[in-house]
Design a protein around this nucleic acid. Structure first.
Length: 445
RNA sequence: GGCCAGGUGGCGGAGAGGCUACGCACCGGAUUGCAAAUCCGUGUACACCGGUUCGAAUCCGGUCCUGGCCUCCA
């Protein structure tokens, strides 16, 4: 079966037909770098990483673009409250983001454009929109005039009257229509600003993605992804701007949106105090356990991220490392290798990762197949030694010392001492296994 | 109020008119100094009420519940 994706724009699964089979283009909305990535941010990264791996296997080239939003009022607010310089915040956050995503085995995108480096193109687009009558200036703001676009609302399935009915946010008085949105806004000297035909200012939220996606992928490209909360208004407005600025284009052909993450059954929010940052989670769990947890539900389903779930994922990976060992490397299964048919079938069916994982469980007695399947999911990339023994605070020498004491005791059939040492190590989170041949192996719990 | 998802065994989670995945946990057995690991085996499910059908977890209608979005949240 060829690849089928659920296209939000069509509200249906559609078979994937690339515009140019030689080079597939995919744009995914990346992080706003005012704080470290949380598990909700990590979900689309991991989901689209699987899609990227899958596409790379089928097509000769995949241009994967994931932006970094480094100009945003949330960043400005963060700087103001902490006193840290904006560049320091963004650089540090980007650095940590890269480390965290690497720990989740997410491949880097081909391009990772930053908003601040594409202001010129945004200004050009805005100017085109003004010239063609889609945008207007009001009190130093440039606004996109929604009624000027006939089909506005197609992606999210809304019409303007619905929006206005439900509006719960104050409408800026200078808007010609309540649905109009900001393309450019003025900056005061204390916040970042760029020179423009409309004075010193900064871009609105949506325009950066329109400018950067089309710059790297062309005005019409294959896949645009992100969290489903972005469908409206962000992606709807991206579509509006882009289609009006580039009238001959189609913008994105397939819109792919992942479902939300909750934490222990509750919405993750700063106000609830349950935001789980990937960075902190990585102190307690390996990145692959987080990755497997994120892939354990279908990407469009809601995912409840729990401590129990993470432990279950860790346990599954333990078992896999124990029976199969690492799956990294060209020797057995790069992404062009023979991926088992049932794994491919599952992934081709709108990225059904739970089914792919289930297929993996059935392959424990055929390591070669298992490795190729695990590889395309970006799992089992550690070596077993690291997997079982890596720990920030473990003192391996001390463990070895206790192990040899215990071995001596067992030879004497002094099981009291032997069990005492087992218990002592267990307190440190070190788990011992006595093998049938008399040797003892250990691992972190 | 409007729009959109979803409710599957103790838990996680696929499937989508007949064959009733898979994993974790539990229980029984083998093995074991103990424990773990491993192997074998058993059980439990489709929110509720109607309808269509030879047959419904799956289709249709209604009810209840949960979550998301409704102008800068992935």
């Amino acid at each position: 079966m060829p690849l089928v994706l659920y296209n939000t724009a069509a509200r249906a699964k559609q078979s994937f037909q690339p515009i140019e089979p030689d080079n597939v283009g995919m744009y995914v909305c990346g992080p706003t770098v005012y704080d470290n990535a949380h598990v909700g941010n990590a979900r689309p990264i991991v989901v689209f990483d699987v899609l990227y791996r899958l596409l790379r296997r089928t097509y000769p080239a995949v241009t994967y673009v994931r932006n970094i939003t480094d100009v945003d009022d949330k960043i400005n607010a963060q700087a103001k409250s902490s006193g840290e310089k904006i560049e320091a915040i963004t650089e540090r956050t980007i650095q940590t983001f890269h480390e965290d995503m690497l720990a989740l085995n997410a491949l880097p995108p081909v391009h990772e454009p930053r908003a601040t480096e594409h202001i010129g193109r945004m200004i050009d687009m805005i100017q085109t929109l003004i010239e063609d009558g889609y945008a207007y200036e009001a009190e130093k703001h440039i606004l996109f005039h929604v009624p000027s676009m006939l089909n506005y609302g197609q992606l999210s399935g809304r019409n303007r009257s619905e929006l206005i009915d439900g509006a719960r946010v104050e409408i800026a008085p200078f808007k010609q229509d309540p649905a109009d949105f900001v393309l450019w806004k003025p900056s005061t000297p204390d916040i970042p600003g760029w020179d423009s035909p409309w004075g010193i200012g900064r871009p609105g939220w949506h325009i950066e993605c329109s400018a950067m996606s089309t710059q790297y992928l062309g005005n019409t490209f294959d896949i645009h992804g992100g969290g489903r909360d972005l469908i409206f208004p962000h992606h709807e407005n991206e579509v509006a701007q882009s289609l009006c600025a580039y009238p001959q284009s189609k913008f994105a052909k397939y819109w792919v949106h992942n479902g939300f993450v909750t934490v222990e059954g509750k919405k993750m929010a700063k106000s609830v105090g349950n935001v789980l940052s990937v960075h902190e989670l990585l102190n307690d769990f390996p990145g692959e356990a987080i990755r497997l947890t994120l892939l354990s539900a279908h990407y469009r389903q809601p995912l409840d991220f729990t401590h129990e779930g993470l432990k279950a994922s860790k346990k599954i990976l333990d078992r896999w490392y124990r029976t199969i060992g690492p799956c990294k490397g060209a020797a057995h299964g790069t992404d062009i290798d023979d991926i088992p048919e049932n794994v491919i079938e599952a992934l081709n069916d709108d990225l059904n990762t739970p089914r792919a994982i289930s297929a993996l469980h059935g392959m424990l007695d055929s390591p070669h197949q298992f490795r190729a399947g695990a590889n395309i999911l970006g799992l089992m990339q550690e070596d077993a030694e690291t997997w079982f023994h890596k720990s920030a605070d473990s003192d391996e020498l001390q463990i070895q010392e206790l192990l040899s004491q215990r071995e001596a005791a067992r030879k004497e059939r002094d099981f009291k001492t032997s069990d005492r040492i087992r218990e002592e190590l267990s307190q440190k989170g070190v788990f011992l296994e006595d093998n049938p041949d008399g040797t003892t192996t250990w691992r972190h719990q």
